[in-house]
């Protein structure tokens, strides 16, 4: 299917990507072309086929509830673009969570 510029903007919002108008214009045909190619999967009759999410059907992998050392706080905050009061700082949050 062909993606319109508005659809590209909608997807960009979901993906939290600030795209320029030029990028939107360039992406719309590219994404449409790639999707048209990928849509070939729809030719396969697979109604009753179980989807695969892992090549290996491993199950019940878990760990015991035993504490392991945490990282030193300095190590975690060292990479933060902005840290303040031992926390990660971000500008004003506008949206509400989840």
């Amino acid at each position: 299917m062909a993606l319109s510029a508005d659809e590209v903007r909608h997807v960009a919002r979901l993906a939290r990507l600030a795209l320029t108008d030029a990028e939107v214009e360039a992406l719309a045909p590219q994404l449409s072309q790639i999707l048209a190619y990928a849509e070939q999967v729809g030719e396969v009759a697979a109604q009753d086929v179980e989807p695969t999410t892992h090549p290996f059907a491993l199950r019940d992998v878990s760990r015991p509830d035993e504490p392991q050392p945490s990282l030193p706080r300095e190590d975690v905050l060292a990479a933060a673009p902005h840290a303040e009061q031992d926390r990660f700082g971000v500008p004003r949050i506008v949206s509400e969570e989840g």
Binding site: S62, D65, L71, R73, L77, D86, F88
Partner: peptide
């Protein structure tokens, strides 16, 4: 394996997994 203790100093019960460091992976607590 980070502790769940309530009231610890900020960002002390953290590791690559729970701070979403690139490459870190989750393992279920049984």
């Amino acid at each position: 394996g980070c502790s769940t203790d309530f009231g610890a100093d900020p960002n002390t019960n953290v590791c690559p997994v729970c701070t979403g460091q690139p490459g870190a992976l989750p393992v279920v607590n049984e």
